[in-house]
Amino acid sequence: MKLTEAQYELIEAYLNGELSPSDQASFEQDMALDTALADAVALQREVVSSFRAIGLERKLQQAHARWQATQEQESEPEAVVRPMPQSTRRSVNRMYWLAAASVMLAISLSIWLYRSQQTDRNTSLAFSEAYQPDQSGDLSKNFSADIQPHQQARFQSIYRQYQSGNYDAVIRELKTLPADQQTIHYRNYMLGLSYLAKKEPAKAVPYLTAALKTPTQTLHQKSEWFLALAYLKNGEQARARDALQRIAGLDSHPYHGLAAKVLLKF
């Protein structure tokens, strides 16, 4: 049922409890007699409650980020500066300094090792949680108009191979495919995806980077997402973070929610 603006306003007022008791009773009577109206009210209620839940989700993500920031701050070791006692014997002083320096070096190394292991573990966990092969199946729907039908059919067949997990076959076939301007971006994207699926992110990165040159928005957005994951898997945290922040900052990006989630994990 397509509502008029007046009907929409009335439903909003009803759901917000803004109607007078008599108007409310009469509106409820109308709903009891008119199932289309009752359905329209139910749908509007779903819209309102879903968006309230989305608003809450955002608030919690922000609270989580604030909490994580305080945790990081608390775990930051504080530099303690103590005045050194003056000694008259230079050799004792030198020995003291050497011993202190060795201890400091050992502590710094341990902290560095611990942190790098923790970070590696976090990025690896973040990747495992976020990575799903592209199973959207809509690659073919987004072919630009200048791709010939026979080329489209070839890519569809390659995509089906990818979906069934035959990544080596996909790579073999794509590498023998003659490169042309119409299909080069799809070729690069599929090669990047396949290497990523084979857990070879270093090989995936250049292909996904090249795929970003596509003029097709959907393919560009997908390439951005999988490139961010390839960086993550490859241990390139700064690049991964930059790419994810860019995606998370674009409300229109289909992966912006996922990117925001991954950013919280490492």
Partner: peptide, 21 residues
């Protein structure tokens, strides 16, 4: 609902986001 929101044009998405979320 999130997917539907993403399919709206920018101006509509902004209004819905600001008002409902």
């Amino acid at each position: 609902m999130k997917q539907a929101l993403l399919q709206l044009k920018d101006d509509c998405r902004r209004v819905i986001d600001w008002f409902y979320i």
